[in-house]
Design a protein around this nucleic acid. Structure first.
Length: 860
RNA sequence: GCCCUGGUGGCGGAAUUGGUAGACGCUGCGGACUUAAAAUCCGCUGCCCCGAAAGGGGCGUGCCGGUUCGAGUCCGGCCCGGGGCACCA
């Protein structure tokens, strides 16, 4: 019987569904294991690139099931967001309808891939049953002062008519639509994530099973830096200006001060300046710049005409304004040490400001700066940082002679003693702006009353339901604001007329706690059952794309901590193990002239095989990129499954490359996986048809079943350890090797070995595994059978081939019975004619024996 | 600029602690089966040289150098690709 995947796959998918194999009773005892794939945004159709993520998770899930673990593997939908609203505007479909339709399609696709989720726990963030807990969570944070309303310059996307988070601005453009982002001052809702900056940073050290890369990205994002706040007296102001520095040890070298143009003392400083108007105009110009513009501008400054006093040298130092000083970071003011900070150096060079060297290279440092000895600052070409033991303080009073770290310690002590500042820690992290002027999101449960002011919606009135009957024009901001019945409410405190908040929440709020809801998804009394959640969480294995390495994971870690502080959770880190899979790329065609991607059906080839654009006859270049509709390089799973089956897609997807790496899809490569499964299929048919009991003539006239057994146990061992290490590609290659060995013994009694192969194959190709398992007369699912255990004794080889080297060059090999004892190996080596000829008449200096591997004879 | 990665055949990729580089798969070539094609099966396939053949020799993991009996793996210095951050004081 021919291997026809389409004949068997739907049948098994149905059987797994009917038997509810993936449904987990979270109240039952057992060795719990919580697996989770990041819940997807239901954007519609899935391609094979998406498949990698889910196939990987499913393979792992099936493996753990067979290991006897009580594994939970739920799935849901990150269902709020902009694309649904855009679809409504463009095509007149209601966002809800569009979203639910996509969910149905994607669910069907998951089933076709043979992926098992516990659908009894399905959640969708756009349903009131889910988002009411978003609102509840918001109210708890509000009560604790962790949600607040603030005015801030925000990134405004003129195209989408909405506010974007810093992280949604990529190179000054909207992450979604690519429009140039503008700066606007708006009143917004924030979550005080900066209160947790230290804990979020410190917590990274406890995440042993997270990729180093992700931890590093988080660490950089939080941007913890240690330093000191120091006050510099400013006689003309009557109060000092506070600066933040990470290098208080260089304070003797602070020869000027630079303020952000937005600094609050600037108006007073320039009040009497003869060119006041020109400076004010310059400041206004900078204020109107977008973040991108400001970043790209050269360093530029203006002298205020005023001076501060360096509290250590007691010198008067000029106060400048500089576009490179950021108002949001530190105190918006810096002390400039041009000799030891590159930015200050450049600024000083540009405006001819003085510099003083206060750090010298330590003894024994190989590269010494040119100015040494002479204190010749003019010889400096760039700043010399020396931020560790390689630097020694000089010309710095009481800290002179100390290595930099010691000097920092001591100067902070002095600063604190003198009461002019203190050691501080600063973070790059900003508070999380969650307001969105958008319809398709969770309404923020707040009310504005003219008499009472800001009033939270009482908890017993939740959810604040998102009205469905709104117009979608794509203009003039949020459609919710035009829904009178939604907006006009009575104040929960005084009962008078009041207005509802029309901002909705950033969808990252939805995804910052969804993993908690999966345990008790239908609970309408509370956000989750704390005792069950504390048993099942943290998530044991979280799987998702690297694109969520910073924001989603950081927000989830933050919200988990706030719930911990509310006394609901006993843990602070939501995900114990994290795995980020790589993207799948595929070649597409790009027009040389316009640099635009060209659909495949518009590509023709000339005699030389050069790709041409059918329309214009312009040459095209093949280019590899992430699969996306705009690149016309997607591989739809339907076509693939129709032709080769889901098992083939699964095996190929996992075989193509190590899962964390980027992988290039190859249509030819798929055939290899298909052939492999075809061979397994035929072997199964033969064994089932009784062709398996006849001995085939081997070298000794009999099948080498010993070799089969050995290979089988080696494979059990290899597949098991490789799955545990996420080395799916080599796990599958081990199975191919086993199937090749079994193939050589096709006529022998390999039935037991073959059944074990089916088990090992199950995580990767579950349908064919179940089908052949049943064909061989077995009861029950392979999925619910027990994962085999390797017998180390049976894995051992009978003979050992020892490589023989002379002076490190391979000169031959000898075969000895296992175990390869040194004496026997050496005898064999020197009995070999061939090898003796290489060492003949030379003095043997040394013999090196590596057990079971090689012998190296060193001769003179 | 800073940080993190990676560089192995025509291609995707294998290679515990330094110990026979190229597993497994794709492609390509040759053969079997077939009226033919597809599918399937078998063999060969890193490069170069000697040989009719059996066989033998040399080179080879981005480049240069070092340590070692022995280096894809360790050390030093470069070159190139990918990703993240980017005036964060």
């Amino acid at each position: 019987m021919q291997y026809r995947p389409t004949d068997i796959e739907p049948k098994w998918q149905q059987r797994w569904a009917d038997a509810r194999v993936a449904e987990t009773d979270v109240t039952a005892p057992g060795d719990k294991l919580y697996m989770l794939n990041m819940f997807p945004y239901p954007s519609g159709d899935l391609h094979v690139g998406h498949g990698r993520n889910y196939i990987l998770g499913d393979a792992l899930y099936r493996y753990f099931r067979m290991q006897g673990r009580a594994a939970l593997n739920p799935m849901g939908w990150d269902a709020f967001g902009l694309p649904a609203e855009n679809a409504a505007i463009k095509r007149g479909i209601h966002p809800r309808e569009w979203t639910l339709g996509n969910i149905q399609r994607m669910k069907r696709q998951f089933a076709r891939w043979g992926i098992l989720y516990d659908w009894s726990k399905e959640i969708a963030s756009c349903e009131p049953e889910y988002y009411r807990w978003n609102q509840w969570l918001f109210l708890q944070l509000y009560k604790r002062g962790l949600a607040y309303r603030g005015t801030a310059p925000v990134n405004w996307c003129p195209q989408d008519q909405t506010v974007l988070a810093n992280e949604q601005v990529v190179e000054g453009r909207c992450e979604r639509c690519g429009a140039l982002v503008e700066q606007r001052e708006l009143s917004q809702w924030f979550l005080r994530i900066t209160d947790y900056a230290d804990r979020l940073d410190a917590g990274l050290d406890t995440l042993e099973h997270w990729p180093e890369k992700v931890k590093l990205m988080q660490r950089n994002w939080i941007g913890r830096s240690l330093g000191a706040d120091v006050e510099f007296p400013v006689p003309v102001l009557g109060h000092p200006i506070r600066v933040f520095t990470t290098r208080p040890d260089t304070i003797y070298g602070a020869t000027f001060m630079v303020l952000a143009p937005e600094h609050r003392d600037v108006p007073a400083l320039i009040a009497d300046h003869p060119d006041r108007e020109a400076i004010e105009a310059w400041i206004t110009g900078i204020r109107n710049q977008s973040a991108l513009e400001r970043q790209e501008k050269e360093k530029e400054g203006r002298f205020t005409g005023r001076h501060a006093v360096n509290p250590f040298t007691n010198e008067e130092i000029p106060i400048w304004l500089g576009n490179f000083v950021l108002p949001q970071y530190g105190t918006g003011a810096i002390m400039s040490v041009p000799a030891h900070d590159q930015r200050d150096f450049e600024f000083a060079q540009q405006y001819g400001l003085p510099m003083r060297i206060v750090v010298a290279a330590a003894e024994g440092r190989t590269s010494r700066p040119p100015h040494e000895e002479a204190d010749e600052t003019s010889a400096l070409q760039e700043a010399f940082t020396f931020k560790d033991e390689s630097g020694i303080s000089v010309n710095s009073g009481e800290i002179s002679g100390l290595p930099v770290p010691k000097a920092i310690e001591k100067i902070i002590a002095i600063i604190e003693e003198r009461g002019i500042g203190k050691g501080t820690v600063r973070y790059r992290l900003r508070d999380w702006l969650i307001s969105r002027q958008r319809y398709w999101g969770t309404p923020i449960p707040m009310i504005y009353c003219e008499r009472c002011g800001l009033e939270p919606v009482p908890e017993d009135q939740l959810p604040v339901t998102l009205p469905l009957d709104v117009p979608f024009t794509g203009r003039e901001g949020n459609p919710l604001a035009k829904h009178d019945a939604f907006v006009n409410v009575s104040c929960p405190r005084c009962g008078g007329a009041a207005k509802r908040e029309t901002d909705t929440m950033d969808t990252f709020v939805d995804s910052s706690w969804y993993f908690l809801r999966f345990i008790t998804p239908r609970d309408d009394e509370k956000i989750f059952d704390a005792s069950l959640v504390n048993r099942w969480l943290p998530v044991d294995q979280y799987i998702g794309g690297i694109e969520h390495a910073i924001l989603h994971l950081l927000y989830a870690r933050f919200i988990t901590r706030t719930l911990h502080d509310l006394g609901l959770l006993q843990f602070e880190e939501p995900f114990t193990r994290l795995f980020n899979q790589g993207v799948i790329t595929k070649e597409g065609y790009k027009d040389i002239l316009t640099n635009a991607w060209v659909p495949l059906d518009e590509v023709v080839f000339d005699d030389q095989g050069t790709a041409l654009h059918r329309e214009t006859r312009a040459p095209l270049i093949p280019e590899v990129g992430k699969m996306s509709k705009s690149r016309f390089n997607v591989v739809p799973p339907d076509v693939l499954i129709e032709r080769y089956g889901a098992d083939t897609e699964r095996v190929y997807t996992l075989f193509i490359a190590p899962p964390e790496k980027e992988a290039a899809w190859s249509d030819e490569g798929v055939i290899g996986a298909y052939r492999f499964l075809g061979r397994v299929w035929h072997m199964g048919q033969q064994i089932c048809g009784g062709q398996a009991i006849l001995p085939v003539p081997g070298q000794a006239g009999l099948p080498d079943l010993h070799r089969v057994t050995r290979k089988l146990h080696q494979t059990i061992d290899a597949v098991t350890t490789r799955i545990e290490r996420f080395e799916f590609n080599t796990a599958i290659s081990a199975l191919m090797e086993l199937s090749n060995v079994l193939g050589e013994h096709a006529g022998a009694n390999i039935r037991d070995a073959f059944e074990t192969l089916l088990k090992l194959l199950h995580p990767f190709a579950p349908h064919i595994s179940e089908e052949l398992w049943e064909l061989l007369g077995n009861e029950g699912f392979v999925l619910t059978s027990k994962w085999p255990v390797a017998d180390r004794e049976l894995m051992k080889e009978d003979t050992v081939v020892i490589a023989v080297q002379v002076n490190g060059k391979l000169r031959g090999q000898v075969e000895v019975p296992a175990p390869a004892e040194e004496q026997r190996v050496m005898e064999a080596v020197f009995n070999s004619e061939r090898i003796r000829s290489w060492v003949a008449e030379k003095e043997i200096v040394k013999k090196i024996y590596v057990p079971g591997k090689l012998v190296n004879v060193v001769v003179k």
